[in-house]
Design a protein around this nucleic acid. Structure first.
Length: 731
DNA sequence: GCAAGGTC
């Protein structure tokens, strides 16, 4: 044995796939937080020991140097030039130590990270942990995980691409600096100013803010919508078998009542109006089967069909994946790779109690090809079932998501649904004299659908097309009596709020977030109270969300438009392509954001005006509760997240623990250290009450007191004699 | 208490 080769994948499941592809069942397996597989084979024409393991996503994450992490120590504007450092992303996982341990005695490193920019970046993170020379490091390029493809990659190893990795470093630094600078500034600016402002954090980010922007854009459309009245001419005709048809007016609707009435009188004025069939057209229409499932489509379907949010969907999908029921759930690919054995997956599903029959029919009639319009993003294959599972083995949302994935997979291999669309065109001629130009008559049409062959919709019933057959034997030249002609009034209606699924769609189209991060951004705007999820899975911005977005528009619209992300992407694209220097791009982008930031700070009053109009000022809200030690006047208790005390005279806020409520003041108890009247704080969980000094809680008076210590209960003075201090009970 | 991106 001459060489030991360390091979590193992006996550444990891929390490396993690789080991199995090269060693079959013959790999020796070492269990651990991150498993290791070993097998013998040939490398560069010699016998070698292969050792396959993985990282778990990024090894490092970027943060500011420690002295810039405190909110009060640093002016946010300094963050643009602040030094940053990479730190182990998940210190508890000990990934760096794991890699170093496994690299011992290895002569070569083969990088099997995902073939995208993030993967390329992780390649360099792995290299940074280890000490191989560049000539010992090789990069596998693969576009799918089928064994054949992996073997081809092994035979054509290349080198990692530093430009692509640097593009990710650039993005990390730009996102960190502009996100944190804006977030800290606006949080500190608005914090404590308004009593009913229900937010402890007012964040900004190049993905989350445009996401919120989409929801507010729709909100504004709804708010500014002015309904308009319209009128339609609606005739009803008696046809052969006693049925009554109500064809649609070719002119659709008119917005002028006088015009509509003129038409009505033309057609209705005299007696015995007739409708003549001008033409009958029949054509075959189809509803095409879906393309193979990728993550974003799964999230949209789960939201629409199952009422499951993207966050929950990904958690459930992750569980189904680790249990071996579905394939890897994070992929952009919607096309089965060349070697993908759809037949084998179908055969597995042919045993299923619910859809086995359908699957056996598909197998018997020859498995169809999936649509070729899907895209191969080169990451993972589309999401498919990997085992046959009955309802009952899985419960609740797990079952419903599995059911969706399995049905969708089968549907991709079934025929399109088809039906016959019949369109009948009628002409109704004026029955009064002197119709002039309108004497030729008005055209009305009706559409019927019949002869449905369900195809894939038999397994995806919600995709079925409703059949609305017309009476048979209607043919050109036939004349039917017009029973009645009605004038119907209606009015235009505003669009509805964005559904979760529409929001996901917009994010994807504008390049906001990735398959893995879209659910996180949506979750953020909901959790931070910028928007709410309403019935029908509609995303409705809150007052805070609306005011924020309108505020950005008043200062600098670019901050909230998807363009902000697109610009960053375009810039780092230059780095990835080797067309621009990493440092230049970071500097250029940050200079841009820094001047935007300065302008934002200068003009923040414009946003503040909107806050003032929407939220009530702190001074007028909250109930009077205890005396301030500085001015001896009463402070107010703001019982809203984050709950706090406010001294109007000193214009200072004092935060209190968030895990309970302030029950009242305690006139006779005063903190011996600062003269503040203690308040009685009642803990939510335990129900225990104790006195708390507002000042000591916020500004611990002694060294070594953690910021959140109950200074008046757990007095930091070693032998405190104060009764208030030594005894947690109210006296 | 902060961003976005991997993955758990």
């Amino acid at each position: 044995m001459t060489a030991t080769v360390l091979m590193v994948a992006e996550k444990p499941s891929i390490a396993e796939t690789i080991a199995k592809a090269f060693a079959g069942g013959g790999a020796h397996f070492r269990k651990g937080k991150v498993p290791v597989y070993e097998y013998e084979g040939n490398f560069k024409g010699q016998r070698a020991l292969f050792r396959v393991t993985s990282v778990v996503g990024h090894v490092f994450s970027l943060d500011f140097a420690p002295q810039y992490r405190g909110w009060d120590k640093t002016d946010p504007k300094e963050l643009f030039d602040a030094p940053t450092q990479k730190e182990e992303a998940n210190p508890k996982a000990h990934i760096v130590a794991h890699l170093r341990g496994e690299a011992k005695g290895c002569s070569h490193l083969v990088l099997w990270l995902d073939c995208d920019r993030e993967g390329e970046n992780i390649c360099f993170e792995v290299m940074q942990c280890l000490h191989f020379s560049r000539s010992q490091v090789l990069r596998a390029h693969f576009s799918s995980l089928v064994p054949e493809d992996l073997r081809r990659s092994m035979a054509n190893l290349g080198v990692p691409n530093e430009d692509e990795a640097l593009a990710v470093d650039a993005r990390q630094e730009i996102d960190l600096k502009c996100g944190v600078a804006f977030t800290r500034f606006q949080t500190k600016f608005f914090q404590g100013r308004y009593g009913n402002l229900d937010a402890r954090l007012i964040s900004y980010g190049p993905c989350q803010t445009p996401t919120l922007g989409f929801t507010v854009e729709r909100h504004d459309l709804i708010q500014s919508f002015k309904p308009e009245k319209f009128w339609k001419i609606c005739p009803s005709l008696s046809v052969s078998d006693g049925r009554v048809l109500e064809p649609e007016w070719e002119r659709g609707r008119v917005f002028d009542q006088a015009v509509a009435t003129t038409f009505l009188q033309l057609l209705k004025g005299g007696k015995g109006a007739k409708a003549e069939v001008k033409s009958v057209s029949r054509k075959k229409e189809s509803r095409v089967r879906p393309v193979p499932l990728n993550t974003v489509e799964m999230l949209k379907l789960a939201s629409k069909q199952l009422g499951m949010g993207p966050h929950e969907t990904m958690q459930v999908a992750e569980r189904l994946y680790t249990s071996g029921y579905i394939s890897y759930p994070r992929t952009e690919t919607s096309k089965y790779p060349a070697g993908f054995d759809t037949r084998a997956v179908l055969q597995e599903q042919s045993r299923h109690g619910y859809w086995g029959d359908t699957v056996r029919e598909v197998l018997a009639s020859g498995v169809g090809k999936a649509k070729s319009s899907g895209v191969d993003a080169g990451d993972h294959p589309p999401i498919t079932p990997t085992a046959c599972v009955e309802e009952g083995t899985l419960t609740g949302s797990s079952w419903r998501l599995y059911d969706l994935v399995a049905r969708h997979f089968i549907a991709t291999l079934m025929p399109d649904a088809s039906y016959t669309k019949t369109k009948v065109t009628f002409v109704i001629r004026p029955t009064v004299e002197g119709a002039g130009d309108l004497g030729g008559g008005e055209v009305f049409t009706i559409v019927g659908r019949s002869d449905f062959s369900p195809g894939f919709t038999s397994i995806l019933p919600w995709m079925a097309v409703e059949m609305t057959p017309l009476p048979p034997n209607i043919s050109e030249g036939q004349v039917f009596p017009v029973n009645d002609v009605a004038l119907r009034e209606g009015s235009t209606s505003p669009p509805d709020y964005l559904t979760e699924s529409e929001l996901i769609d917009k994010m994807e189209k504008h390049g906001i977030g990735t398959d893995a991060s879209i659910p996180v951004h949506i979750n953020n705007i909901l959790e931070r109270n910028y928007a709410r999820l309403e019935t029908g899975r509609k995303i409705v911005p809150t007052n805070l969300g609306v005011v924020l977005v309108h505020g950005y528009h008043k200062i600098d619209s670019e901050l909230v438009l998807p363009k902000v992300r697109a610009h960053i992407e375009q810039q780092i694209g230059l780095v990835a392509a080797g067309k621009a220097d990493y440092k230049d791009v970071v500097k250029h982008s940050l200079d841009g954001f820094e001047s935007k930031f300065k302008y934002f700070v200068e003009k923040i009053e414009r946003m503040n005006e909107l806050f003032e109009a929407t939220f009530s000022s702190l001074a007028s809200s909250g109930k009077i509760i205890s005396k301030c030690g500085d001015c001896r006047r009463y402070m107010r208790y703001i019982n809203l997240r984050p709950q706090r005390l406010y001294c109007q005279a000193c214009e200072k806020t004092y935060s209190v623990p968030q895990n309970g409520v302030v029950k009242g003041g305690s006139a006779e108890l005063t903190c011996p250290l600062d003269g503040f009247e203690l308040v009685i704080f009642s803990e939510g969980g335990t129900g225990k009450s104790f006195p708390l000094c507002p000042r000591c809680y916020n500004e611990p008076p002694f060294e070594g007191v953690p910021n959140n210590a109950m200074a008046c209960i757990h007095c930091p003075m070693p032998k405190c004699k104060s009764s208030v201090h030594t005894n947690g009970e109210v006296q």
